[in-house]
Design a protein around this nucleic acid. Structure first.
Lengths: 214, 214
DNA sequence: TATAAAATATTGGACGATCATCATAATTCT
DNA sequence: AGAATTATGATGATCGTCCAATATTTTATA
């Protein structure tokens, strides 16, 4: 049922002191929030369900977060931070050409740990909610900008190597819009798309930017 | 505030008989449902808000639909039916080449009446909800299949003209996934994308399919 | 055509269910 | 023992549905 199941504390045999316990509980709640949002959407992610997923009782959220809203926002930002880190690492990898880095960043969106059905589904839920929730909107806009800032110089350099003139910012944007579409499609299953195909679509799209005009 | 405002019955001076009135009320509720879902998401589209948007009282939904859920589903299917009709008409247009038809169908997603912020936002809300609502999932899967069935033969014919071998079904899928991503981006505004740019991204993507391999 | 009766349309209040938050109690750790 | 952590019941708010009442249109009748 739930591929990314987080065992609750009863299944953790190791003894933890309070500080460790606190970190563990917090992290459990963050992961449980993502998992629950993925399966039930934002409004379906009730305190009851999130806590059940985290193996805790209903009242615990209040002890670790100001409110349910604050937990969800923290979960979104926590997840995004780890997602951008993976991309930054690839962007800095000097053993790869700029074009290779672009392709690898794109591909990383369809490989664990960045990709999982849970992450795709939760991302879809949060972006959807960002239409009426200003906090999510801000967080997601900032996330989008960070990714574009990462990709733009790579597109610029890759184009120079190909002796092409392209609008690097536009290329970066559109690649990420495509990846978003692929994530949504994978999250809902509406187009019978497989993860492997998603990778191919990205590669084909990048091809398009580095081909000479006819 | 609401660009697609439907005037309520008090602003309609013409006398309507019961049959006309019934059609008008039903249609008002369907449009109001889309508009409200666009602005407030599915769970935020309360009976109160939908009816206010339609210029009716809270109880009226029960008179025209089995339940709120049934209204939302009817609104989704009603909207999709008009959207697919526009695409079918383009697909049948013999004055255009297959490739031109593909481009025009793609472009129609970014021109009124198929495109409006309201439609994009509501579509995003429904696809998002399709993860946990089976009725939406079925409806959307069927919609997706219809569009792919429309595009696939066009890609096949266009490729033949270009003397290329492509996977037409794959091309059709991926074009529609891209369009979905563009709609979501426009609905949320997260990537600062404009409608005009969305059209260009589509064109660039279609280019990619009809370019000789290097 | 006028009018009564029937059918249909519309309204808004009541009810029951769900949920986040809060207060308080119980438990565990230091 | 005292502090931190965890559990549970109570409370108030929100929402969909149902229902009784009121209003309007249509049909039947003379």
């Amino acid at each position: 049922m739930n591929p990314n199941f987080q065992p609750d504390r009863h299944e953790i045999p190791v003894r933890m002191n309070q500080a460790e316990n606190r970190r563990f509980r917090r992290q459990s709640l963050l992961r449980a929030a993502i998992a629950t949002v993925a399966r039930y959407d934002i409004q379906g992610a009730t305190v009851e369900r999130i806590c059940a997923e985290a193996g805790a009782s209903r009242g615990l959220i209040a002890h670790y977060f100001e409110s349910k809203e604050e937990l969800l926002l923290a979960a979104l930002e926590d997840w995004f931070q780890s997602a951008i880190k993976i991309k930054r690492d690839i962007a800095k990898d000097k053993s790869l050409s700029a074009e290779q880095r672009i392709r690898q960043i794109a591909a990383s969106n369809f490989t664990a740990p960045s990709y999982s059905w849970e992450n795709a589904a939760a991302w879809q839920a949060f972006t959807n909610a960002s239409r009426y929730n200003l906090a999510y909107a801000d967080s997601i806009r900032s996330a989008s900008r960070k990714v574009r800032r990462l990709l733009k110089p790579l597109f610029k350099r890759a184009a120079r190597k190909h002796k092409l003139k392209i609008k690097a910012g536009f290329a970066a944007s559109s690649l990420y819009v495509l990846i978003d579409g692929l994530w949504n499609s994978l999250a809902t299953g509406k187009d019978d798309l497989k993860v492997g195909s998603a990778r191919k679509v990205c590669d084909k799209f990048v091809d398009g930017w580095f081909v000479k005009n006819q």
